[in-house]
Each structure stands twice: as C-alpha cells, then as structure tokens.
Amino acid sequence: MRLRNKPLAIHAVVGKFCDHLPFRQQAEIERLGRIDRTMLANLMGRVAFHLAPFIDVLIDGTCLIPTAYVDPLRYHCRRY
C-alpha cells in the first residue's frame, strides 16, 4: 500500500490531532477541493498502517520500564 497524496495526508493528520478538528469540519474547510469525510477517514487509515511499525517500536521501548509516567496519567505496560 502506497501513500499517494502525502501533503493531504499530513494536512489531515495535523488537522485531526494538533488542531482537534473532526473530519466533518475538515471536509467543510476543504469543500472546494471536493474532499469528503470518507476520503479523510480512508487516508487516516493508510497513515495508521504506515505508522504501525514505528508505534510498535515505541511501545516496546516504553515497556522496558514497569511504569511510564505521562503527564498526570500512569501507563502500565502489559506483556502479551
């Protein structure tokens, strides 16, 4: 699987996770470009597919310690 439209993917990820915009609102902003919520959701799924190996490495590195403190929350690692 290849990510064809990288600038749009980056824009969607930043809008979703940094600007906290739901897909509906992103689709309204990008209305002139004929981008709908389904396209944004599919694009986010492709980005998640490509980031999965990176996230697995991060989780494995984090689970080397029994408890990781993240802001006010505790993340307890579980070995499967």
Rank of each mutant, 00 (worst) to 15 (best):
A52G: 12
A12G: 04
R37H: 08
V13I: 15
F49W: 04
L51R: 03
I65R: 14
C18A: 15
P53Y: 01
T67R: 12
K16R: 11
A27P: 01
T67H: 07
R46S: 05
T62V: 15
H11E: 13
Q25V: 05
D36V: 02
E28W: 06
C18Q: 09
C18V: 10
N42F: 05
E30V: 03
L51V: 12
P66D: 04
L8E: 00
V13Q: 11
L64I: 08
L58W: 10
L40F: 01
V13D: 04
G61H: 08
I59V: 15
A12D: 02
P53W: 00
A12R: 03
D56C: 12
A68W: 08
I35V: 15
F23Y: 12
H11Q: 13
A41Y: 07
R37D: 07
A27Y: 01
L43T: 03
H20N: 15
I10G: 15
R46P: 03
E30P: 06
D19F: 06
D36G: 10
V14A: 05
L58R: 06
L43M: 06
M44H: 07
T38D: 11
D19W: 03
L58D: 02
L32F: 13
L40G: 02
I59R: 09
G61V: 04
R34F: 07
I29W: 08
L43I: 02
M44D: 08
L43Y: 01
H20Y: 12
D36M: 01
L58I: 05
M44L: 12
I35S: 02
C63P: 10
R34W: 03
R46K: 07
R46G: 09
E30M: 05
F54Q: 06
T62Q: 15
C18H: 06
I59N: 13
K16E: 10
Q26T: 00
D60R: 15
T62I: 13
R31N: 06
M39N: 04
K16I: 04
G33M: 12
G45S: 13
I10E: 14
D56V: 08
T62R: 15
R31Q: 13
F23E: 09
P66H: 07
R46A: 05
R37S: 14
Y69A: 07
M39W: 04
A41I: 07
H11F: 14
A27C: 01
